[in-house]
Amino acid sequence: MTKSGASTKLITLVSPPPSLFIFAEGSPLSRPAEIRPEKRADENDGRAPRGSEQKASDTSVEELVQRIADVFGRRLDCASLGPDDDFFQRGGSSFLAALCTAELRKQGITLAIQDIFVASTPQSLALRIQPLQKAQ
């Protein structure tokens, strides 16, 4: 038996090839994310001190765009992120989207992780979630 035949047989015995692939339409394709530990201002369970949250319902669309862009920029390690920069094209992933959603919720902004997948720029996301902020 040749050397290449032995390695093929070994691979087949150890891990058979997958027999089924399922591709989800519309899912963003992005590079794997690395885990970036969140920087905490205090050791109070990662939460901001009481009274420091701004009510999101008092936030204008422009301010909401800026807050979203700031969070996206921190998670993507981008110095500046514009209102029309796409989260996934700049290297975002589903894991980073979940971290951004959690951070924005801590700031009092109402959104679901699906909102980032549907509206992946700060401007489009702010316009999508602005009505939710007023409903609170």
Results as ranks from 00 to 15, higher is better:
residue 94 S to N: 06
residue 109 I to H: 00
residue 28 P to F: 04
residue 10 L to F: 05
residue 127 L to M: 14
residue 134 K to V: 09
residue 104 L to G: 00
residue 134 K to L: 11
residue 59 T to S: 09
residue 135 A to L: 12
residue 37 P to E: 06
residue 73 G to K: 13
residue 28 P to W: 03
residue 38 E to W: 01
residue 5 G to H: 07
residue 36 R to Y: 03
residue 21 F to M: 15
residue 40 R to K: 14
residue 130 Q to K: 15
residue 81 L to A: 14
residue 65 V to H: 00
residue 69 A to W: 03
residue 95 F to Y: 07
residue 19 S to R: 10
residue 126 A to W: 04
residue 83 P to G: 12
residue 12 T to C: 01
residue 70 D to S: 10
residue 15 S to A: 10
residue 91 G to I: 14
residue 44 N to E: 15
residue 36 R to I: 02
residue 45 D to T: 14
residue 35 I to N: 02
residue 86 D to W: 04
residue 126 A to R: 02
residue 22 I to S: 10
residue 117 F to G: 00
residue 50 R to T: 09
residue 129 I to W: 02
residue 62 E to V: 09
residue 104 L to R: 01
residue 37 P to S: 05
residue 127 L to P: 00
residue 126 A to Q: 03
residue 79 A to H: 06
residue 112 A to K: 06
residue 85 D to F: 07
residue 101 T to Y: 02
residue 74 R to Y: 11
residue 64 L to E: 03
residue 111 L to D: 00
residue 33 A to R: 02
residue 14 V to R: 11
residue 13 L to T: 06
residue 132 L to C: 05
residue 5 G to S: 11
residue 20 L to T: 14
residue 8 T to Y: 04
residue 104 L to D: 00
residue 136 Q to M: 07
residue 50 R to N: 09
residue 73 G to R: 11
residue 40 R to V: 13
residue 133 Q to G: 05
residue 38 E to H: 04
residue 56 A to D: 05
residue 95 F to V: 07
residue 93 S to A: 10
residue 59 T to A: 03
residue 49 P to K: 06
residue 20 L to F: 14
residue 58 D to F: 12
residue 92 G to A: 10
residue 37 P to M: 02
residue 37 P to F: 01
residue 35 I to V: 06
residue 60 S to M: 14
residue 39 K to L: 14
residue 33 A to L: 02
residue 51 G to V: 09
residue 87 F to Q: 05
residue 19 S to E: 14
residue 44 N to Q: 14
residue 66 Q to T: 14
residue 112 A to Y: 03
residue 14 V to Y: 07
residue 73 G to N: 11
residue 86 D to K: 04
residue 61 V to E: 02
residue 34 E to C: 04
residue 6 A to F: 12
residue 135 A to E: 14
residue 135 A to Q: 15
residue 41 A to G: 15
residue 113 I to L: 10
residue 44 N to L: 15
residue 89 Q to I: 07
residue 72 F to M: 10
residue 86 D to A: 07
residue 58 D to S: 13
residue 132 L to K: 07
residue 72 F to Y: 11
residue 129 I to M: 09
residue 62 E to W: 06
residue 57 S to P: 01
residue 39 K to Y: 11
residue 64 L to G: 02
residue 35 I to W: 05
residue 70 D to I: 12
residue 47 R to Q: 15
residue 75 R to C: 06
residue 82 G to I: 06
residue 60 S to Q: 10
residue 59 T to P: 00
residue 110 T to Q: 05
residue 101 T to Q: 13
residue 93 S to H: 12
residue 78 C to L: 09
residue 117 F to T: 00
residue 125 L to I: 06
residue 102 A to K: 05
residue 115 D to M: 02
residue 100 C to A: 15
residue 133 Q to Y: 09
residue 55 K to H: 15
residue 93 S to N: 13
residue 57 S to E: 13
residue 59 T to Q: 07
residue 82 G to D: 08
residue 51 G to F: 04
residue 52 S to H: 08
residue 130 Q to C: 07
residue 67 R to L: 09
residue 96 L to H: 01
residue 116 I to W: 00
residue 106 K to V: 05
residue 86 D to I: 08
residue 39 K to H: 13
residue 52 S to M: 10
residue 116 I to E: 01
residue 116 I to M: 03
residue 63 E to Y: 03
residue 6 A to I: 12
residue 88 F to R: 02
residue 77 D to E: 15
residue 6 A to K: 10
residue 91 G to A: 15
residue 6 A to V: 13
residue 130 Q to T: 05
residue 16 P to K: 11
residue 6 A to Y: 11
residue 108 G to R: 03
residue 57 S to T: 10
residue 136 Q to S: 13
residue 6 A to C: 08
residue 114 Q to E: 11
